[in-house]
Amino acid sequence: MAKKTYRQAINEALRQEMARDADVVIIGEDVAGGQGGSAGVLDAYGGVMGVTKGLVGMFGPERVIDTPISESAIIGMAVGAANTGLRPVAELMFVDFLGVCFDQLFNQAAKVRYMFGGKAKTPMVMRSMIGAGLCAAAQHSQTLHPIFTHVPGLKVVMPSGAYDAKGLLIEAIRDDDPVIFLEHKALYEQIEEVPDEPYMIPFGEANIILDGGDVTVVALSNMVHVALAAARSVAKDGVRAEVIDPRTTSPLDEDTILESVAKTGRLVIVDESPPRCSLAADIAALAVTKAFRDLKAPVEMITAPHTPVPFAPSLERLYIPGADAVTQAVRRVLQS
């Protein structure tokens, strides 16, 4: 056991799975980097955020495959390879690039098994980077998990820390369905204790990060840290918030959320995506349809506004849900 960053945890999961299973290949833009450059080096990038650094040296360019900037071909190639015997981990560098490859995911990857009557499987992972906070502006900062979560046939994973990132990624690689693995760009330097040996975290099992009986706060990915900051803040007033990280949005651990709401009667959901048809709206609907009589206050959704992500740091700070807004929401539901 050692302290590792989220980036190192993901890299370690990839390395261990590639060493274990020769069918695991990495496909993406600059996952090594340097091909065709005048320096004649490989691993010039190791992924644009350095997540796949070192892997090409261990496994070679035939398993750490640098591609042209062709997202449809990257994702589709991973789907076809998965259907025929590989276990590809394709990288969509920024989740915003979904716009140039969506068909290959939602019409192909997600539907192959159902359309073909269960005769095909698609054991692929699409890793992608989500989230605001780095002033990357409107086309490099979105948090699009609701779009993937809406699509039957896809599984959606959003690790909030280094420990979960490793265990969930190993689970994703060994899973026989297409898995969307969303890494938050503001979390790559996050540090946790991460076991050296491989381990798996099952999908659909929420993590109760903080026990509490007064209010349930559900948050995902980077918003977990916002929720924890808010929980610490209200704790000074003696309020005990229960912070739940579902870890995967598809499948979603409804039971853990509903059990917590049954206990607290109060629900605040923190979601970095805009509010309409979001995961916040989805979990709110879950609570009012399945736990209406448990609720003692209206459900609060703390989300990004219904806008693209702005560039200016002052505006981006306003865009991202903050601990103050969550704290206020917790206080509101406690007053009802």
Binding site: G76, A81, L86
Partner: peptide
């Protein structure tokens, strides 16, 4: 829809 998928099958053949 199929050309990206088919090159994936070709990648499997090449890799394996």
């Amino acid at each position: 829809g199929n050309p990206p998928l088919v090159i994936g099958a070709a990648l499997t053949a090449k890799t394996k």
